[in-house]
């Protein structure tokens, strides 16, 4: 039986692993033999933006206000 977790708790777990995922993306681009090291800063920047998008998607009631951090 899957444990029922609240949306916020799930999002916290998700965000907890997101930094590792971003590091994997950056590391992958850096090691890639396709010569895309130049993409690392943009990919990392957008991924961090993505964390905000993910938070906004979770707490829909606050979605319009989450963007005020920009």
């Amino acid at each position: 039986m899957l444990k029922k977790r609240g949306a916020v708790q799930r999002k916290v777990i998700m965000l907890g692993s997101s930094f590792g995922s971003i590091a994997e993306l950056a590391g992958g681009l850096w090691r890639s033999d396709s010569g895309k090291r130049w993409l690392v800063p943009l990919a990392v920047f957008l991924s961090v933006t993505g964390i905000v998008l993910a938070v906004a998607a979770t707490v829909e009631a606050l979605a319009p206000f989450v963007y005020s951090i920009f």
């Binding site: 943009l42 920047f45 957008l46 933006t49 998008l53 906004a56 829909e60 009631a61 606050l62 979605a63 319009p64 989450v66 963007y67 920009f70």
Partner: peptide, 26 residues
């Protein structure tokens, strides 16, 4: 209705920010 509106507004704001990023950063 509020949630739909909030989500739509959030999507518009998110879209706007990403569009600005598109033209400024990309």
């Amino acid at each position: 209705s509020y949630l739909r509106m909030a989500a739509a507004l959030g999507a518009v704001m998110g879209g706007f920010i990403l569009t600005v990023q598109y033209f400024v950063i990309l």
